[in-house]
Computed example of a mutant assay.
Amino acid sequence: MIDAMADQGWMMAGSEDWMRTGAPDGRPIPALRSDVAHSARIYDFFLGGKDNFPADREAAAEIAEVWPSLPVSMRANRQFMRRVVHHLAAEHDVRQFLDLGTGLPTEPNLHQVAQAVHPDARVVYVDNDPLVLVHARALLTSTPEGRTSYVDADLHDARAIVASSQVRQILDLEQPVAVSLFAILQFVTDEDAARAIIRELMAPLASGSLLALSTVTADSNPKEVTEGLAVYAARGIPERARNRAEVAALLTSAGLEVLDPGVQLVHRWHPDGESAALPDEHVQMHGAVARKP
């Protein structure tokens, strides 16, 4: 399978050596399941990437039949990430970021946005998809002044993630940290589990730390989202759509203060000219930023 990926130009330079030697911590990289659609690779396909397999493209085509605005919504979410990270770095002077559910590298990556504002910014990426791990070297580029690291871990083990050696070596938890959960919590369908993840991520962090998130909603386009999520579920990828009040409750239940402009469709959160022009029905992600008192 790895040789087939290399033949098609899907392996980044040097990653064949990494596949032989294992992950950065010496552990073997888990086997890739190219025959089963994966949410990160479907996302990559809709963003125009090449890190996907026929099963992912077949699933994407089936989803797009009933959810034709999904690619637009996904691109709007990516633009939201860029605006949020720039805002946190420029307006809140944040220099430390913990990004969970990182997904496949898509430029600009989060550290590139943050380090464009603060060259000494430090970023730790977290994911548990084998293909993301293969490509993690693309996430480990950094300015000479800054640092980046990658943690192969499950989002549900939030407490262990914050306690991991990579996080503790790169981030100073006595200073504010910006945690990001972009387009990942929709895959946590149990609300108690989603709230626990946020609580456990934020509890060890310093006062003034921030949480940025985006997650799927049906508020703006119920028909497409409902039908699209049914296709995802049939492909073994269950998701939960949340309304605005449910997204706000995820944040406030952890004792966080939701910052202006509150929970918004992602293209309405501090929009630029491109995002402001998008019709609401084409965007099915709510986003928000909240602060730990």
Results as ranks from 00 to 15, higher is better:
E62Q: 15
V66S: 15
L47S: 06
I63V: 15
D99V: 13
F46W: 15
H111V: 04
T102P: 04
V113D: 02
L32Y: 07
S39G: 12
H38C: 14
L110F: 11
K50Y: 02
K50R: 14
G49D: 09
V85T: 07
I63Y: 13
A114R: 01
G48M: 10
P108V: 06
F45D: 06
P54Y: 06
G101Y: 08
N109T: 09
T106M: 09
T102D: 07
G48Q: 05
K50P: 00
H111S: 04
P30K: 00
D99T: 06
W67M: 15
A31S: 11
G26S: 12
N109V: 08
R78A: 08
D35F: 00
I29P: 09
A31W: 00
R33P: 06
V66L: 15
V117K: 01
V66P: 11
D25P: 00
L32R: 02
F53G: 05
F97V: 12
L88D: 07
M74K: 08
D25I: 02
G26R: 07
G26A: 13
P30T: 01
D25C: 10
A40M: 12
H38M: 13
A60V: 11
Q112V: 02
M81D: 03
P30D: 11
Y43H: 15
Q96V: 04
R33T: 09
E62F: 11
A61D: 15
E65N: 15
L110I: 12
L104V: 09
T102S: 15
A114Q: 02
E58S: 14
Q96P: 00
G22S: 10
A64F: 09
S69Y: 12
F46K: 05
D120R: 14
N52T: 14
P28T: 07
Q112Y: 00
A61P: 00
R41C: 08
R83C: 03
F97M: 10
S69A: 14
H87M: 10
A37H: 11
V113C: 06
V66R: 15
H86I: 00
P68N: 11
R33Y: 03
N109G: 05
L70G: 11
G101C: 09
A40L: 12
D25H: 00
W67G: 03
S39F: 13
S73K: 08
A37P: 13
E62Y: 09
Q112I: 01
A31C: 03
I63N: 10
R82P: 00
V85Q: 02
N109R: 02
A23N: 13
A89Y: 03
R83Y: 02
L32P: 04
L47C: 13
T102Y: 07
G22L: 13
P30C: 07
H86P: 00
A116H: 01
Q79L: 14
A40T: 12
D51E: 14
H92S: 07
S34I: 03
Y43V: 12
A59F: 13
E91I: 07
Y43E: 06
A23E: 10
A40D: 07
I63P: 06
N77E: 14
F80W: 05
G103W: 04
A61C: 13
L104I: 14
L70A: 14
A116N: 01
F80I: 03
A116M: 01
A60Q: 09
G22F: 14
P71K: 02
F80D: 02
